[in-house]
């Protein structure tokens, strides 16, 4: 099932690139707009990179179930015995084409923000563990708004507040890698705990939301 969604995503590779470039553009715009010396950038980096990741994840979420709803395959998925697996596969595919590319490129972004060494690997790790949570929680919002005309704008309103903890701890991990490297592991473990909980429970909520939206 994952294979199918990936296949679909790869055949629409445009979407992957749009999400990635959106992330890069946002991250690049901020230093330009601030016009600050590079001294202050390391302090801004954790929050900014995480906000950009959050926005880029939401950008592509609106279409997560839209096509399945429009072409009728959502019906078939919901009446199959494997709704949970299908939702999980969708979320995994979403992460593989949005969260993962962004994670892979993050060390480069970190360099541009004057981070180095340990800080770069922390940025990478925090995004690696944190961005799947964004996809999981985002899927609930996507499922709730599937088929709505104003879907994409509502999604942001719903999903952003729910994603605050991921953003707070993700950014805190990177921040502490600058100030107090001993604490980094705590944050990464907290993010991992969130990931486990999100992977287990979010697809259940998403499946329930899809049933409601497909009524």
């Amino acid at each position: 099932m994952l294979k199918r969604d990936l296949l679909l995503a790869v055949r629409n590779y445009n979407d992957v690139l749009i999400g990635l470039f959106f992330f890069i553009v946002v991250v690049a715009l901020i230093p330009i707009s601030l016009n600050e010396s590079t001294q202050i950038l390391p302090r801004l980096a954790p929050g900014l990179v995480w906000i950009a990741a959050l926005l880029s994840s939401i950008l592509s979420l609106a279409r997560l179930f839209e096509e399945d709803h429009a072409d009728g395959s959502l019906d078939l998925i919901l009446s199959s015995g494997s709704v949970y697996q299908c939702v999980l596969a969708k979320v995994a595919a979403h992460w593989l084409v949005t969260g993962l590319p962004l994670t892979l490129i993050s060390p480069l972004i970190g360099l541009a923000y004057n981070l180095h060494g340990e800080q770069l690997s922390t940025l990478f790790m925090s995004l690696l563990v944190g961005t799947p949570v964004l996809s999981c929680i985002g899927a609930i919002g996507a499922a709730l708004t599937t088929g709505l005309r104003s879907g994409s704008s509502i999604i942001a309103l719903i999903v952003l507040p729910l994603n605050i903890p991921v953003m707070v701890y993700g950014a805190a991990a990177v921040r502490s890698s600058i100030n107090s490297p001993d604490n980094v592991m705590t944050y990464l473990l907290l993010l991992t705990a969130m990931l486990i909980i999100a992977v287990v429970f979010a697809p259940i909520a998403t499946a329930a939301a899809l049933k409601i939206s497909n009524d």
């Binding site: 903890p165 705590t186 907290l190 969130m194």
Partner: peptide, 13 residues
């Protein structure tokens, strides 16, 4: 609760 915790304890220590 998680949101509340994350805001109140950005630093778990």
């Amino acid at each position: 609760p998680v949101i509340y915790l994350s805001i109140n304890c950005p630093d778990p220590y």
